[in-house]
Amino acid sequence: MSDARTKSMDEALLALIASSLTMWGRSGSARQDESGNIIVESEAHVVRIARAAPGVPFRWSITIDGRERVASSVTGALRVLRSSLDPDFRPSRVRIAPIEITPP
């Protein structure tokens, strides 16, 4: 994994979490710690978002107040994050089928 790509991903995720907190009406902030993990502190909750270890079938490990959950994509991580911060959040049960890569 190139450092440039990693930095780009981290920056993008940090920006997304910051704007998500605002959109969800949650106070708090997100920062990157010295290990490269993203730490979200919001209304008495502390959430750590870390890349999963190589070789496991998911990409993100999300530790919420000491409990670990996993996600396979950044959108999955966002869903887990909101579920942990917003007790009224009800994620959609609808799942969108992948669209065809090229037109039919």
Binding site: M1, R5, T6, S8, M9, E11, A12, L13, A15, L16, A18, S19, S20, T22, M23, R59, S73, V74, T75, L78
Partner: peptide, 18 residues
């Protein structure tokens, strides 16, 4: 939020690139 949608697209694209 327009900014949130743009940040969301950017994060997804960054992950796919990664």
């Amino acid at each position: 939020s327009e900014g949130w949608v743009l940040d969301l697209i950017a994060a997804i694209e960054a992950e796919i690139d990664e």
